[in-house]
Computed example of a mutant assay.
Amino acid sequence: MSQTNQQKALKKILKSSLNGKLDEEKQNAIDLWYNQLGAETLPILPLENPEQQAQLERSIKNGLNQKALSKLEKRSAKIQLNYIKYAAIFFFCLILGIQGYHFFNTDKRLAKAVTYSSNRTAAKLVTLKDGSKVLLNVSSQITIDKDFGVKDRRITLTGEAFFDIAKDKRKPFVIHTGKIDTKVLGTSFNINAYPDRDKIKIGVITGKVSVLDRKSAKQLAYKMTSGTTLSYYIKNSKTVLRDEDLSLISAWKDNRLFIDNATIVEIRSQLERYYHVKVVLHNKVHNGKRYTIHFDKDPANRVMQILSMLTKRKFIYQTNQIIIK
Results as ranks from 00 to 15, higher is better:
63 G>V: 01
144 I>A: 13
149 G>R: 04
195 P>L: 09
182 T>H: 08
82 N>L: 13
198 D>C: 03
56 L>V: 00
72 L>H: 12
183 K>V: 10
105 N>S: 04
81 L>A: 15
194 Y>R: 07
68 A>I: 04
170 R>D: 15
158 T>H: 00
164 D>Y: 01
197 R>S: 11
109 R>S: 12
125 L>P: 00
201 K>R: 09
131 G>M: 01
172 P>E: 02
148 F>R: 10
91 F>H: 01
191 I>N: 07
84 I>D: 15
184 V>S: 03
122 A>G: 00
196 D>N: 14
169 K>L: 07
182 T>A: 11
188 S>F: 03
130 D>I: 11
106 T>S: 13
153 R>V: 03
136 L>G: 07
164 D>T: 08
57 E>H: 01
84 I>S: 15
146 K>C: 03
173 F>C: 08
146 K>E: 12
61 K>A: 01
109 R>A: 08
126 V>G: 06
83 Y>N: 15
100 G>P: 02
158 T>Q: 04
118 S>N: 07
185 L>S: 05
128 L>F: 13
64 L>H: 00
118 S>Q: 12
121 T>A: 14
87 A>P: 11
66 Q>R: 05
144 I>R: 13
78 K>R: 11
71 K>I: 13
93 C>W: 10
166 A>C: 02
176 H>M: 08
121 T>V: 13
187 T>P: 04
170 R>L: 13
199 K>A: 09
92 F>R: 03
154 R>N: 11
72 L>E: 13
122 A>Y: 14
111 A>V: 12
106 T>F: 10
114 V>Y: 08
67 K>F: 04
193 A>M: 11
101 Y>P: 01
123 A>Y: 03
69 L>E: 06
173 F>M: 07
83 Y>P: 11
171 K>F: 11
109 R>L: 09
80 Q>K: 15
81 L>M: 14
82 N>E: 14
123 A>M: 15
135 L>N: 04
144 I>K: 10
114 V>F: 05
119 N>W: 14
166 A>P: 00
147 D>F: 09
160 E>F: 01
60 I>V: 10
128 L>G: 08
188 S>D: 05
149 G>K: 06
127 T>Y: 01
